[in-house]
């Protein structure tokens, strides 16, 4: 069914989870309507990656509910596309960029079935979207870091999910690529996809995202960036390490000591 037909794409209710009895995130609740880009921000160790992994079922939850289109998210994981923060892959693995992107098609193709012309077409389109078509036959380990990131993003695109969970998609890529990626995410939103992005780049969030979730083990704030980005919210999220500076009509967030 079309993503837009639902009131909420993703609903998280009272979610608590963590490793070995520790609670990495606690009592998280929020709901995202379809067709939005949501930034998840917070300091290192705030539980951003954990939140993603719990939604995807990679870490068991201790409590709470996760609904995708009003049904348990875990029963429809193929509808969720995931870009891990750090792809822990064997760089020498003998697969081409095209092979990697094709992996996004696997859940749609299903068990024991062969890939069809439709899948190759989807892969080609995904590669074109991230501007990697000339590298389609390059071995994945020969790409630069930024190119690899785009290749993995293309895999998510090829999967054609309703919800995209992208963990630091722009870390370690150059400014041009960053802009290209955000433009791409906006395109996806306009197609009705829901995009959740964990990021350190608060300025992008301010400028481009529809909603922002401030996370520090608990939800500190959730709403449109201009409402959420107030001194006190950021203080509670990051401690006292961030400042907001008004430059003309732009608000710019700068790191105070360490941070980003």
């Amino acid at each position: 069914m079309d993503n837009k037909a639902w009131r909420y794409c993703l609903e998280v209710r009272d979610l608590t989870a963590g490793y070995d009895g520790q609670r990495a995130i606690e009592a998280i609740s929020f709901a995202i309507p379809p067709g939005q880009i949501v930034g998840v921000i917070g300091p290192n160790g705030a539980g951003k990656s954990t939140l993603f992994k719990v939604i995807l079922g990679l870490i068991p939850r201790q409590q709470g509910e996760i609904l995708l289109h009003e049904a348990p998210a875990l029963s429809q994981r193929a509808m969720m596309g995931y870009l891990p923060q750090l792809e822990e892959i064997n760089r020498a693995f003998p697969v081409s960029v095209q092979d990697v992107v094709m992996m996004g098609r696997y859940p749609r193709v299903g068990w024991c079935r062969r890939l069809g012309p439709k899948d190759y077409e989807a892969v080609r389109r995904a590669l074109a979207r991230v501007d990697l078509l000339p590298h389609a036959l390059t071995q994945i380990g020969r790409l630069s870091g930024g190119q690899q990131q785009r290749a993995f993003l293309a895999r998510v695109l090829a999967q054609d999910p309703h919800l995209l969970l992208l963990d630091e998609p722009v870390s370690g890529v150059d400014a041009t690529t960053q802009h290209a990626i955000f433009a791409l995410l906006e395109d996806l939103r306009n197609l009705g996809k829901t995009v959740v992005v964990a990021t350190h780049d608060l300025n992008c969030v301010v400028e481009r995202f529809d909603q922002v979730l401030c996370l520090n083990r608990r939800v500190i704030a959730y709403g449109p960036p201009r409402e959420v980005f107030r001194e006190d919210t950021l203080d509670r999220t990051y401690g006292n390490h961030l400042m907001i500076v008004q430059v003309g009509d732009r608000r710019v967030v700068v790191a105070d000591e360490h941070g980003h």
Binding site: L56, L58, A78, Y82, E88, I89, V100, P107, R155
Partner: peptide, 14 residues
């Protein structure tokens, strides 16, 4: 192949 290349994403895909 997917399992061997990227077990985490394989699991995330269900």
């Amino acid at each position: 192949l997917l399992l061997s290349f990227d077990p985490i994403v394989a699991e995330a895909m269900g």
